[in-house]
């Protein structure tokens, strides 16, 4: 699938309600089934939170959405994950293209040991960026502004990104993800390594990004999930230690009156 083809599909489905749809997805690591039969539809330009105890497969599902799991030898997926109606696991789909359209922010801030400017421009460059220096400057500023970190770094664009504070590094990583103009941003516990104030800044940023992007966040922080997300999916591992989706619905409902007893027990801290 080329950029051009995907953009064509994109046009046709621009008004579709769901950004990503999982249909009967099973994920295996070797012979071990890590995730069992997950089906869920992620609404466009909304924040969806994945919650659940450690090892429940929520991160695995998240990483399946931009095929990061492919990097793990022996991982395999059954079922379909649709992005703009196209199964991203079809043999004619290149994971590299998927990852450009579905960006990712990781648990530990991981800026490249390069300048802030080069951190932002890396994505565009490797994806075949063509533009003048001025256009590149504009792209960098746009990405940094998008991640609400422009004012803090505009005077030190050529200093290493690793010199920033943890919270700033994470926003730099978000800016870096924005620079390749993704539609969906996956966040894998983006605040777990940050202090409360940095966490709050990232959360505000997420609400800001929600206007243009679809965001999926894995979090262990119930309060965070209830603060920022529009929808919440609760995962739990079953008797075979395979993760499965227990309940999925509007965050409001999950955090006031969940339908499943296990969801209620988890949210109110009875286990996990």
């Amino acid at each position: 699938m080329t950029v051009a083809e995907l953009s064509a599909v994109d046009m046709a489905q621009a008004n579709g309600r769901y950004a990503v749809e999982l249909h009967n997805t099973h994920i295996y690591y070797g012979s071990f089934r890590a995730v069992k039969d997950v089906s869920l539809q992620i609404e466009r330009q909304r924040i969806t939170a994945f919650i659940g105890p450690s090892g429940c497969g929520k991160s695995t599902v998240l990483r399946a959405i931009n095929r990061m799991n492919d990097l793990i030898p022996g991982s395999r997926l059954e079922g379909r994950i649709l992005f703009h109606g196209k199964n991203i696991y079809d043999p004619d789909v290149d994971p590299v293209e998927v990852r450009r359209r579905i960006g990712m922010v990781f648990q530990k801030p991981n800026p490249f040991p390069k300048s802030i400017y080069d951190n932002i421009m890396f994505g565009p460059r490797i994806n075949g960026w063509r533009g003048t220096k001025a256009q590149a400057d504009e792209l960098v500023e746009r990405a940094l502004r998008g991640a609400a970190i422009w004012d803090e770094v505009k005077d030190k664009l050529h200093q290493p990104g690793t010199a920033l504070s943890g919270g700033q590094q994470q926003r730099l990583c978000i800016a870096r993800a924005l620079a390749v103009q993704p539609e969906v941003i996956l966040m894998d516990e983006p605040c777990s390594a940050l202090d409360p104030i940095s966490t709050l800044k990232i959360e505000e940023l997420m609400l800001e990004l929600r206007r243009n992007y679809t965001i999926i966040i894995v979090t262990h922080n119930m309060q965070q999930a209830s603060r920022v997300s529009d929808y919440t999916a609760f995962f739990l591992m079953d008797a075979d230690r395979a993760g499965q989706l227990v309940e999925y619905g509007p965050t409001e409902q999950i955090f006031t009156s969940p339908n499943d007893k296990r969801t209620e027990d988890y949210i109110s801290g009875r286990f996990g």
Binding site: M222, P258, S268
Partner: peptide, 9 residues
């Protein structure tokens, strides 16, 4: 201290 949720809250 407990940040209770759901029934606890």
């Amino acid at each position: 201290q407990w940040q209770p949720l759901l029934r606890d809250l």
